[in-house]
Design a protein around this nucleic acid. Structure first.
Lengths: 211, 211
DNA sequence: TTGTTCATTTTTGTATCCAGAATTTTACCT
DNA sequence: AGGTAAAATTCTGGATACAAAAATGAACAA
């Protein structure tokens, strides 16, 4: 059953590889190479790359050719700032319209996070961290906002960040902060929720001294 | 002097046409038709459409084919909310780092706006309106933020909005509000600037009772 | 050895072609 | 006339072909 088109397959696969840094930023993506690797035609790869170009996940080299987008130190700072703006905005909206089910979902993610750091599954914890923030965006009830968040290379940014060395303490602190945000949200205390979120970001910024 | 590639030409042209509503939302974009119309090959059109797909300016129909993205009433509301979040965020950043030259640039735009409504050039006034907000985003000094703004279909949204009937009074009010925001910004009075911006948006929302 | 030029080969950009799916039109039956 | 089935046309998705541009590398001169 090949219900999925070739181009879509190539697109999905390439996108996943880029987002999980299985192909490093700055790399040139040669059409023929990937066509063979994913066993699709070169046109399908080209279509996938063009779509990713539209998404900003790859860029065109000055003399042609596609390259995986890479971030400078400035980019990181700016993405962090953007992320903070978007998440604080979402938080305000979420405060008004969050449902009991959504609160439960967030709590479940927090618990998964706790359990994973207890067992030393740090990759899993990172996944849960990402999920926590994405779910928060979802709770804003604003699809455009969520979309913008997802398209802002924040997942990529998050991935790259977590390559830096974290101590157990960092994870525990993250856990606490997530729960603090969630509790304020549950109480519909927007100001406290915002304050907690800002603290969460402020601490995150100090960890970003790598690169 | 045709340094521009065929695909890029097709992309630029199609994008412009979509953004200026020269091709209406929901329309099917047939590859052959546009290939002939823009006198490029079908592949170039295909590439252009794929890139626009990545940008979210066109979507894939359930049975294939590209269609110009169209917005529901809900979309409009959500885009407005998103826009407010982004602009308020930019305003805060701009308050800290705006330069004299940037203030001058904004003032010039305001004056152009005034002059145009005095002479009855309303399309021009809309253009200046859009420019004012984009320049404001620029003043945040955050390229990612600006990019996100530009990619949020806000220009499109803006265009569609201005199709509704505005009175001279609306334009004059807009002018006043822009200047109020700018003045607060010049004084680095973030709270006042925010307040003014929110008022600007609140009034804009009341005009959106069309569709 | 170092640098330069020229030939070779990769790689991309574009056009053309083909098969299958979807859509429209036509023709037929009731 | 109205509806249905079949035929014809149109359209898309994908493969192949080819020319132009870029990268590689080998030969040669200083």
């Amino acid at each position: 059953m090949k219900s999925e088109s070739m181009a879509l397959k190539a697109y999905t696969e390439l996108r996943r590889k880029i987002l999980t840094i299985q192909v490093s930023p700055g790399t040139r993506l040669k059409e023929d190479f990937w066509a063979k690797k994913l066993s699709v035609s070169r046109m399908s790869i080209r279509e996938a790359l063009t779509r990713l170009l539209g998404e900003g996940l790859v860029i065109l080299g000055p003399k042609g050719g596609y390259f995986v987008t890479s971030f400078t130190h400035e980019d990181f700072t700016q993405i962090r700032e953007l992320r903070e703006i978007l998440e604080l905005g979402a938080l305000r909206a979420a405060c008004e319209k969050i449902t009991k089910e959504q609160v439960a979902k967030l709590e479940k993610i927090c618990e998964a996070f706790t359990s994973m750091i207890e067992q030393g599954f740090f990759a899993g914890a990172n996944e849960a961290d990402l999920k926590f923030h994405e779910t928060l965006m979802e709770c804003s009830g604003n699809k455009k906002l969520l979309n913008t968040y997802l398209n802002s290379h924040i997942p990529l940014f998050h991935q790259q960040l977590t390559k830096s060395t974290h101590t157990d303490n960092d994870y525990e602190q993250t856990d606490k902060e997530h729960r603090a945000i969630l509790n304020a949200l549950k109480d519909k205390n927007i100001d406290l929720a915002k304050k907690n979120m800002q603290a969460h970001f402020a601490r995150g910024a100090t960890l970003q001294t790598i690169d």
